[in-house]
Design a protein around this nucleic acid. Structure first.
Lengths: 207, 207
DNA sequence: AGGACCCGGGAACGAGCGTTCTCCTCGGTT
DNA sequence: AACCGAGGAGAACGCTCGTTCCCGGGTCCT
């Protein structure tokens, strides 16, 4: 194989990569809105304009597309969350920013709950890799929250509690179709955060 | 139609009702373990020993079976929850009993999250009656919690917060495969309940 | 210019599903 | 004893879906 062939092959691979990315970006909203099983390969072909043959050359199977969509969601979710958290430097506000982020998300067009939880409900009963990705995303979120919390000097018990509050707010908002749970969760979080950041005062009460 | 015919017809209807109940009871664990779409009618026939013909005479369609299974889950869930809550008379303990109930549930064999949330993830994208049932169950839970909370003299902001905590604990436990979230949610609930039941003290802190 | 290769369109295939139909057996009635 | 309707077993039907195959046209190299 000549050097030019190497270059050409690399270029093809790069083009495939960008094509894969645009496909994932295009089909993600569909999967989010209706679920994975409800969107067929032919609909993916129609919405992307990419022939089935090419789709199957770019992705070995539909499950691989689903996986990459999940990974893409993970990336955008983390980026949006980080942006909101890092918009302030006050430790207390950084922790509560999680719930402001949720409030904005819940009121956004087409909100239908956490894609990972939905995927878990849809595919958790059957095969392997999807639940693992869901688990990884939740773990990542919890660890990020733990970093923010410990940076604020909070005890390590706080972060899991806030994570549970956030998780509950998301599913409650999705099912009830209302953004109210973000406010309610934020109010609860304020109490927990204040209790955690002022341990002396609460001890005082206990006495 | 003679009077005896009336009796016979009633007896048949009654037998159908009990048969329906036993079928629902038999297939519920299957649906819970693997999801609704993953369990086919033929498997229902095999596990119940009831022929397809009779199944379709007892239930107009698979969706009707799914609906009744959801309603059955609703009943057992509420009964178990009530039993745990009413095992004590101390207002504070009654509220926290919710999370003790969760802890027991999470460690039970075959726990795989909230059947309603899973169903919502599986079938929420395609319309119909199932999401409505899920919504009704969540509303019922929140209202029950609100009754317990107000009976304890807590402000009406507490119950939604506890509901969100419980919801989050369930999905966290399901995805992480651990019962830890019940303990963590209980700890958070203690703080919220104590803050709500001792408003004077927290006001004192604020000053 | 000619041929080899690539690629999109879409038909085809095989599996799985919910639902219905057919055949046969069996128990009860006249 | 003969008939009749109900009910079970399971094949059949129609549909959907993931995946593959075939064909026709276009493109690039020689």
């Amino acid at each position: 194989m000549t050097e030019e062939d190497h270059w050409a092959a690399d270029r093809v691979l790069a083009e495939d990569a960008v094509m894969r990315a645009t496909i994932i970006e295009t089909v993600s909203p569909l999967f989010y809105a209706r679920g994975f099983t409800a969107v067929g390969m032919d609909e993916l072909r129609a919405v992307t304009g990419v022939s089935l043959k090419r789709l199957y050359r770019l992705f070995p199977s539909k499950e691989d597309i689903v996986e990459e969509v999940l990974l893409s969601w993970r990336g955008t979710w983390e980026a949006n969350l980080r942006a909101q958290v890092e918009s302030t430097q006050v430790p207390r506000e950084r922790l509560l920013a999680v719930f402001d982020f949720l409030a904005g998300w819940f009121t956004s067009e087409g909100f239908r709950g956490c894609a990972f939880i939905n995927s878990f409900g849809e595919l958790g009963g059957i095969s392997g890799r999807i639940p693992a990705i869901v688990r990884a995303q939740k773990k990542e979120f919890q660890e990020y929250l733990a970093r923010v919390a410990t940076a604020s000097g909070a005890p390590e018990t706080l972060a899991p509690q806030l994570a549970i509050l956030a998780e509950g707010a998301v599913t409650t908002a999705a099912i009830a179709g209302s953004a109210e749970s973000a406010r309610q969760a934020r109010a609860a979080a304020e109490i927990l955060v204040d209790a955690a950041l002022a341990p002396a005062a609460s001890t005082l009460i206990a006495l």
